[in-house]
Amino acid sequence: MEVRTIKVFTTVDNINLHTQVVDMSMTYGQQFGPTYLDGADVTKIKPHNSHEGKTFYVLPNDDTLRVEAFEYYHTTDPSFLGRYMSALNHTKKWKYPQVNGLTSIKWADNNCYLATALLTLQQIELKFNPPALQDAYYRARAGEAANFCALILAYCNKTVGELGDVRETMSYLFQHANLDSCKRVLNVVCKTCGQQQTTLKGVEAVMYMGTLSYEQFKKGVQIPCTCGKQATKYLVQQESPFVMMSAPPAQYELKHGTFTCASEYTGNYQCGHYKHITSKETLYCIDGALLTKSSEYKGPITDVFYKENSYTTTIK
C-alpha cells in the first residue's frame, strides 16, 4: 500500500517557510505537534488534498525554529505562539472599519479597549522592536488589523473576551517599542525636605499616572512627601515624541487643539466601556464603527496623549 502524501510549508514567522512532505494517514499533531492554519487549530486533523502548498504555523520545537521565533517575536515564552494563534482565530472574524481616516474595530468580545489602543497607536510616533509587531502594525494602518490585535493580546497575556485596560495595554506595548531616546527629568520640591531631581528613561519617561493635564504637570502637581507634608512635583525636561497622561476616570474637559487623542471610560472596574476622542479640525468621538463630532467635550476621561518633541522648564 502506497503512502499518500502532500507537500506543505511549516513556519513560526510566515517569513521562513520549511518544506514538509506530510503523510495523509496521520494527523498534523502526530507529525508536527500543535499546528495552526489561519489561526485555526488543526492539530487533530489529517492532511487533505486542499492543504497542498498551504502554510501551517507550528510551535518552535527545534533550534532553527526557536531562533526564527525569537528573532521575529522577541520572546522565548513557549506558550506565546499558541496564544497568538488562538487569538487570531477570533480577531480574523472582527470587522476593521476605516473611521475618520483611522483603522478602528467594530465592537465584539469586549474589544473596546483594543480599538482605543489601536486608534491611539496610529496617532503617536512609535516604532516597535519585534519585527512581528512592526509588520502587523503597518498592515493594521492599511486596514488589516487582525494579526496586530492578536499579537497585542498575546504580548499582554490576554484572551479574547476578557476586559482590558488601555493604560495597561499601552504599557505592555511600550515595553516592546523603541523608547531608548526618551528621557524625563522631574523635580520634587518640599518646604521641609528641599528639592530632589529624578531622571527617568524609556517607558517611565512617557507615562504618568495622577493627572490628565500635561500643562498642569509642567506647572506642578501636589504629591505627598515622605515627611508627610505636601510637596510639588513638576516637569523639568521632556525628550520624547509623545507623552501619555493618565488618571482614574473623572469628568474632564478636553479643549480642541490642546491634545492629540484621549480615552474615555464609562462604567466601573468590573464592567465598563471605552471610547476614543481625537482632536482634528474639530473633536471626534470614535466608538467602534461609530463616529460623532463636537466642538467641545466633557466626560469621564482616563488617558490623554500629547505630541511632544523637546521641553525644558522655565521655572527657576
Rank of each mutant, 00 (worst) to 15 (best):
E2I: 09
R4I: 14
T10S: 09
I15F: 14
T19E: 15
V21Q: 12
M24E: 11
Q30L: 13
G33P: 07
T35K: 05
Y36H: 06
L37T: 10
G39F: 10
A40V: 14
A40G: 13
D41K: 07
V42E: 06
E52K: 12
E52A: 14
G53W: 11
K54E: 14
V58T: 10
V58C: 10
L59D: 14
L59Q: 11
P60T: 07
N61L: 14
N61K: 12
R66L: 12
V67S: 14
E68C: 05
A69K: 02
E71T: 09
D77K: 05
D77C: 12
S79L: 13
S79A: 14
F80W: 04
Y84V: 05
Y84Q: 01
A87L: 07
L88V: 06
K95L: 14
T103L: 06
S104P: 02
W107S: 05
A108T: 08
N111S: 03
C112K: 04
T116F: 04
L118D: 02
L121F: 08
I124R: 04
N129M: 07
A132N: 05
L133T: 04
D135I: 08
A142F: 11
A142E: 15
E144C: 10
A150L: 02
L151R: 04
L153D: 04
C156V: 06
K158I: 05
T159S: 15
T159D: 13
G164K: 03
V166D: 02
V166C: 07
Y172C: 09
F174V: 04
L179V: 05
S181F: 11
C182V: 05
V185M: 06
C193A: 03
C193L: 02
Q195A: 13
V203K: 11
E204C: 07
E204K: 13
S213L: 03
Y214M: 13
E215Q: 08
F217H: 03
G220K: 02
G220A: 06
Q222L: 12
Q222C: 10
T226V: 14
A231W: 00
T232F: 09
K233P: 00
K233L: 15
M245P: 00
M245A: 02
S246W: 00
A247D: 04
E253H: 11
S263V: 11
L290E: 15
L291Y: 14
K293Y: 08
E296P: 12
G299R: 06
P300W: 12
Y311C: 00
T314Q: 15
K316E: 15
K316N: 15
K316C: 15
